[in-house]
Amino acid sequence: MSGREHPDGYTSYDGIGYERLSLSAWRVMVRELIDYWELIRRLVIRNIAGQFRQSFLGYIWIMLPPIATTVVFSVLQKARVVNIEMPEGSMPYAIFALLGMTVWGYFTQLTMMATTSISNAGGLVSKIYFPREVLVLSAVGNAIVNFLIRLVVVVLTFLLLQYAPHWEIVYYVVLLIPFTLLGVGLGLLLAPINTMMNDVGRLMEFAFQFGMFLAPTVYPTPDIATANDTWQSLLFWAHQINPVSHYLYAAHELVQHGTLTFGPGLQAAVILSFLVFLVGWRFFHAIEPLLAERV
């Protein structure tokens, strides 16, 4: 529970619980997470089951967006409307774009669903008490499930195009942990603010929509060594400062070469991810008591 449970059996809530700001709050936070694991699981199942109960195509709707983007960009590429130069010996463009869209889409959905989770559950939040992290984490759970469903498309594409990725791709699971935590941390930071100003959610949606084109999703990062004008180097740096890019690079590299260069970019991205998560969780826990009256 949010209140302190005292040894004498009392649970108490006091003025804007300052104990939430103390160091021992970490213990409470972990405790709550363990206690409410069951509820998170149930909510994830509920949302997935409820999502497509009245839909004919069901889970196809989850698979469609990355497929559509990939097909469109492949057609544009073939028709030479866009001229995306893939490096020598690179994977087929369709696979490159699909990988990029799947990973980017995962991050987008994860962050968006986490950000809007509290405001979407307003009725529940203002009426029943439970740790609000539960809502954010169950949204994350749904995003993970959607990601798994989309992975099926990726695997099918590999089979269809008879492209064999290096088996080392399974190591990507390890990288997915900080990657996911980055999205969760952002969600935990933004969800409370979004309860009051849903501009935040819209802003994020906008940022993700256009950010897609400023990240190595449907085209590879220009090579800084051969960059011949400022625009190309500008784009290069835009990719470099985006932590998501480094997770994308890693996915591409693992699929294509079966190796992982843990360079400074990726190191920074991983450290940043953990930091964002810890700060976000702490922030969320501290202001949790204010959420109910603001949704």
Partner: peptide, 24 residues
Amino acid sequence: GIYAPTYGKVSYRGRLQALIALGA
């Protein structure tokens, strides 16, 4: 425990169940 009091403190013993919004 839905709203934090601005001042003061509430305490209770045991499991508390509020029938405020049934079906939420």
